[in-house]
Design a protein around this nucleic acid. Structure first.
Length: 312
DNA sequence: AAGGGCCTCAACCGCTATAGA
DNA sequence: CTCTATAGCGGTTGAGGCCCT
């Protein structure tokens, strides 16, 4: 199938734009506004393809574009959003005023990707690179989807109180989110749910890196149990005691215990639950929770599946 | 000074989505 | 419904600058 060229091939200039060309384009767009890119080059006196004009304007000449070095805050935002959205540069760019998708993409490929690698993190998954060199697909999925169900359950229960990004990070086991939010543990202004989930996240992260040949139960959980077998999988006796002394935590502790108990039936087995009856319902909850639509649930779920086994 | 390798980033390419005739 | 134009996206390329020998 022959594609219609976006412009006549003959006489069309390619390559770097000259200041004169930029001025012609700016002058035309200031006078006539954006649009009509196909006919623009001829009207503006440019020997360029309309698409080239549009890109030059969108990525370089637009007056609202911020140029110069990225701030540490912008770096942080990009890394977090990349963990959440992957290579969706346009989506990431909407969260950084004045930055274009092209600029962010280049910055990622030349700087941030290397920085993550230097920190021992896989720039694709944002997870620690296994020292054995084994890729994630060479890992045995951990026993059951119980942990996925558990985390979904926690999500469904506490989503109202939690920062969505933090919760997403927790569910995909992203160490960046966990690290960023670790200060919450000691913060008197944060609710205890964050503290508990941080602990659970740390635990779930440790569960996701069992090499394929490791048939032992180094995680401390047997093949037939999920997170749920014992509350002490997550907390030391001292920590549990400390939390129980805080009256505000008692209800939460009981709720978490009930949630953790729920997942204890073993691989693939789902018990009745007062709030959510099956995994599909849980995904429906996440879907509705994701009203803004900026969380890629497919990626979210496949990420879970890669770490904890088949989710649905 | 020369030149080879590496890095950066603007620009391009190929594709899909969408709107409108 | 089909076709065409346009917009937008993500991956890739290559010119130019920098650094090292």
């Amino acid at each position: 199938m022959v594609r219609t060229p976006c412009c006549k091939e003959e006489g069309v200039k390619k390559g770097a734009w000259t200041p004169e060309e930029d001025q012609k384009l700016i002058a035309y767009l200031q006078l006539h506004g954006e649009g009509g890119w196909r006919t623009l080059p001829e009207k503006a006196g440019l020997k360029r393809c309309g698409k080239s004009c549009r890109l030059r304007w969108a990525n370089y000449l637009r007056p609202d574009i911020k140029r110069g070095e990225f701030s540490p805050e912008e770096d942080d935002t990009i890394i977090k959003l990349h963990a959440l959205k992957g290579n969706k540069w346009a989506a990431i760019a909407t969260n950084l005023a004045g930055r274009t998708d092209n600029e962010i993409k280049n910055y990622w490929n030349t700087n941030l990707k290397k920085r993550l690698k230097q920190k021992g993190l896989d720039p694709v998954t944002h997870k620690p690179i296994n020292s054995t060199g084994l890729k994630p697909e060479n890992h045995k999925p951990i026993r059951s989807s119980g942990s996925a169900r558990l985390l979904n359950r926690v999500a469904s229960k506490y989503a109202v109180d939690l920062n969505r990004d933090l919760l997403t990070g927790i569910i995909i086991g992203d160490p960046t989110f966990i690290a960023v939010d670790s200060q919450m543990i000691d913060s008197p202004t944060e609710n205890s749910t964050s503290t508990l989930l941080n602990k659970m996240a740390a635990k779930s992260t440790s569960l996701t890196s069992i090499p394929i040949n490791n048939t032992s139960t180094s995680s401390g959980l047997s093949d037939n149990c999920s997170f749920s077998d014992d509350f002490t999988d997550f907390f030391s006796n001292e920590e549990i005691s400390d939390m129980y002394t805080n009256v505000d935590n008692v209800g939460l502790m009981e709720e978490l215990k009930s949630i953790l108990s729920y997942g204890g039936a073993g691989a693939g087995d789902i018990k009745e639950s007062p709030e959510v009856n099956n995994v599909a319902d849980e995904m429906e909850f996440l879907d509705s929770w994701n009203e803004e639509g900026d969380l890629d649930l497919d990626k979210f779920v496949s990420s879970l599946e890669s770490k904890v086994g088949v989710f649905v």
